[in-house]
Structure formats: structure tokens, C-alpha cells
Amino acid sequence: MGLFDVLRAHKWLDLNAPDPSTPIDDVELLAVDMETTGLKPKQHQIVSIGWVPIANNRVQLSGAKYVLIKGVEVGNSATIHHLRDSDLENGCMLEEAMEMLTKDLMGKAMLAHFAPIETAFYSHACKQLWGKVPQLQVVDTFALERRHMERMSTLPRGEDLRLSRVRSRYGLPNYRNHNALTDAMACAELYLAMAAHRPPSTLKDMQKNLQI
């Protein structure tokens, strides 16, 4: 019996995610980014997914993955992520991509910039494919920076919290946006830059003000 045959036999897809009380430096993270045809999981589709693990406060490049989703009609969203229907022909089916991602999420918390997008599409895909929604632990660099700016008595505007704008404030280089792997890497680097300025904390502390 394969991994996902076993998982389907359980009441829930158990990711064995870290406990919220775990010291954040002991938490392994998986930075995830998804490019989609829109913002509504029930109406739109995942086009590509990129992810990269973080362990011991280091980006683990050997674990980075990037997948294109076969069979998606990108439509007008191609103007954002620059992927065409023909680019996806050599990709994999959504279920294979989700199995790969879910396997790499096991034992980790998901990291994303504005995590409601990734968590919503991930949960919707799991529900469609397997009838269950895994219990995620999530850290959001968007929420972390918003909280930091509010502590500094700065009222953040939408543009102030874009990934590229936040990276620039931490002295990180500018990357091209809307490539799932590049954006996952950019989020991972941003998180580590933020970590250098934070006091010791737990996973739960990092999740304050998180909206998913």
C-alpha cells in the first residue's frame, strides 16, 4: 500500500505538523507559492507550485521543487504568470503535484507570503481529491511584517506589504515576480531576514494576526 493509500484510510490526512508551542527555531518550514488562474479556489485552478524547505534557519536548496499542472486553461491569467497552455503540456496532473507537496509538508509548517491564497487552494484541492482537509500549521511573512509595522506605529498600505517591497526593506535583492519557485525562494529568504531581528519565540507567537 502506497503513502496516499494509507493516508486515505485515515479519518484525516495527518501531516504530523509541529505543535504550536514548539520553539520557532526548532520548527521546520516549507515555503510554498502557487500561481493560479484567479483568486477563488472554487472557480479558479492552480497553474504551478513551487516550494523549498527551511531547516536549522537555512534554506535547503536540495529540497526545492517546481511543478506545472497539466490540463489547466490559463486564459487571461497568462499575462500575470507568463505561462501558456502549451507550457503546461509536459507538467503533471494536480493529484500527483498535491501528493508531492503533501509528502514534503509532513512534519513541517507551511510558510507563505499572504498565506490565505496558498492555504485556500491547497485545502480545496485536498478536499476535491481525497475528501479531507489536512490540519496545517502556517507562518505568513505578510502577517509578520504587518504586525511589525503596526508596532512601529506605521500604518501599512497594500503596496507596503507586497513581497518585493518588504524584501527591499530588509536589504534583499529584487526578483522577478510570479514564478512559483522564485517566489517561494523569495519568501524563504525574507523569513530568515526577519528571523534575524526577532526575539526567541514559539510557532504560536509567529501566528498572531494570521488570517486563514
Rank of each mutant, 00 (worst) to 15 (best):
D25A: 14
D26I: 03
E28G: 07
L29Q: 00
L30G: 01
A31C: 02
V32P: 00
V32R: 00
V32L: 07
D33T: 09
M34N: 01
T36M: 10
T37F: 02
T37W: 02
G38I: 11
K40S: 13
P41I: 12
P41N: 12
K42I: 11
Q43E: 15
H44C: 10
V47F: 05
V47H: 02
G50N: 09
G50W: 06
W51P: 00
W51M: 09
W51Y: 15
W51G: 01
V52I: 15
A55P: 03
N57W: 09
R58W: 02
V59F: 07
V59C: 10
Q60R: 13
L61H: 14
L61P: 06
S62W: 04
A64I: 04
K65N: 14
Y66A: 06
V67K: 10
L68M: 12
L68C: 08
L68P: 03
I69S: 00
K70V: 01
K70S: 08
G71P: 09
G71V: 04
G71T: 07
V72C: 03
V74R: 06
V74A: 09
G75A: 12
N76W: 10
A78Q: 15
A78W: 11
A78H: 14
T79K: 13
I80C: 03
I80L: 12
H81C: 14
H82W: 10
H82C: 14
L83F: 13
D85E: 14
D85P: 08
L88T: 12
L88V: 13
E89W: 10
N90H: 15
N90C: 09
N90R: 13
G91W: 03
G91S: 09
G91C: 09
L94F: 01
L94I: 14
L94A: 02
A97R: 01
A97C: 11
A97M: 05
M98V: 04
E99M: 12
M100E: 06
L101D: 00
T102A: 10
K103G: 04
L105W: 03
L105K: 02
M106A: 08
G107Q: 13
A109I: 05
M110L: 15
A112N: 05
H113A: 11
F114K: 11
A120M: 08
A120C: 12
F121P: 01
Y122L: 14
Y122H: 10
H124I: 05
A125S: 15
A125C: 14
A125W: 03
A125T: 09
A125F: 04
C126E: 03
C126A: 09
L129Q: 07
W130H: 06
W130C: 06
K132R: 15
K132M: 10
V133R: 11
V133P: 00
V133S: 09
P134E: 05
P134H: 04
Q135L: 10
